[in-house]
């Protein structure tokens, strides 16, 4: 019983829990990325480490957060166009937490995270609406037949797996040909009517993402808003192990949510994503 009460009290403070989860994901991400631009990062870690240990009894500045933020900035400076989109979201979330350390206003932190989440999801919807390849269903059609989506489920159907292997091998051979010959490649469907299901999946994606953006914008604390957000995160993870980005969205959920059960769901998602990231089963 005391364990349950302890868990409940831990879950009460949304910001504290979310900040701990963010530090976990940030630490693992920085550890994975540390090999890029390692000379500059070694210098940053050296300065951060010395500063932390020499001033560990003072809590004027969040040295660990500032050091890890500097590592993110370093990647932005040197590899701006090569970084995944969640690197940008992570940078803004970390910046919000560092700002929170100084202004100590939970409502400002809440607003930062709420608006960031809305911006990210709504931009994603716009990008999809503006992409002819996405709206026509061509993108999902290609990805499904190449085995890049729903792979964990498709593995239960050996015939479909064989078609995926054959599609991939054909594509590899096709890529080696001279494009000036204007040849084309026939893609085999891994199950009947992939084209039709791709179209449905296109509009399902757009509708759910739009619903999440609108719900979080107008009712950021509502249970219904978080049910849709949690459903979207789980849906994306079922489609593909985009664990880095989904961990961040789940942490945004922890920041904004008041419902204790939903916070448990978000925490489970974040920690599971962390496990998948560090074991390299998922994408960082």
């Amino acid at each position: 019983m005391s364990y349950l009460l302890n868990i409940k009290s831990k879950l009460k403070d949304s910001s504290a829990l979310a900040i701990q989860l963010l530090l976990l994901i940030l630490g693992s991400y920085c550890f994975i990325m540390v090999e890029e631009n390692r000379k500059w990062k070694a210098l940053i870690l050296l300065i951060g480490g010395i500063s932390y240990f020499l001033s560990r009894n003072r809590k004027n500045h969040p040295i660990i957060w500032i050091t890890l933020f500097a590592l993110l900035l370093e990647d932005l400076i040197h590899d701006y166009f090569w970084l995944a989109n969640h690197h940008f979201l992570l940078t803004f979330m970390v910046l919000s937490v560092i700002a929170f350390h100084y202004h100590k206003r939970g409502d400002y932190l809440f607003k930062n995270i709420q608006i960031l989440l809305v911006i990210v999801v709504i931009t994603s919807v716009f990008q999809k609406l503006m992409s002819r390849q996405f709206i026509s269903g061509d993108f999902y059609y290609f990805m499904i037949n190449q085995g890049a989506l729903f792979r964990k489920f498709i593995n239960f159907f050996p015939e479909s797996v064989e078609i995926i292997k054959s599609n991939s091998a054909n594509l590899t051979n096709f890529q080696a040909t001279n494009p000036n010959e204007h040849q084309s490649l026939i893609i085999r469907d891994i199950f009947p009517k992939v084209n039709f299901y791709s179209q449905i999946f296109v509009w399902l994606t757009i509708i759910i993402e739009s619903a999440v953006a609108i719900a979080i914008l107008f009712k950021p604390k509502s249970v219904w808003s978080h049910l849709i957000l949690a459903m979207m995160i789980i849906g994306i993870l079922a489609t593909r192990f985009e664990t880095g980005f989904m961990a961040l969205l789940a942490i945004c959920g922890v920041f904004l949510c008041n419902n204790i059960y939903l916070k448990v769901v978000y925490t489970l998602i974040s920690v599971s994503c962390f496990v998948l990231i560090v074991t390299r089963i998922g994408y960082h």
């Binding site: 166009f81 970084l83 989109n85 690197h87 940008f88 931009t123 994603s124 990008q127 999809k128 993108f139």
Partner: peptide, 14 residues
């Protein structure tokens, strides 16, 4: 590419 540069356009184009 839509996949990079902080425009959140991943999974919209090949």
């Amino acid at each position: 590419s839509k996949w990079k540069g902080g425009g959140y356009g991943m999974y919209t184009d090949i």
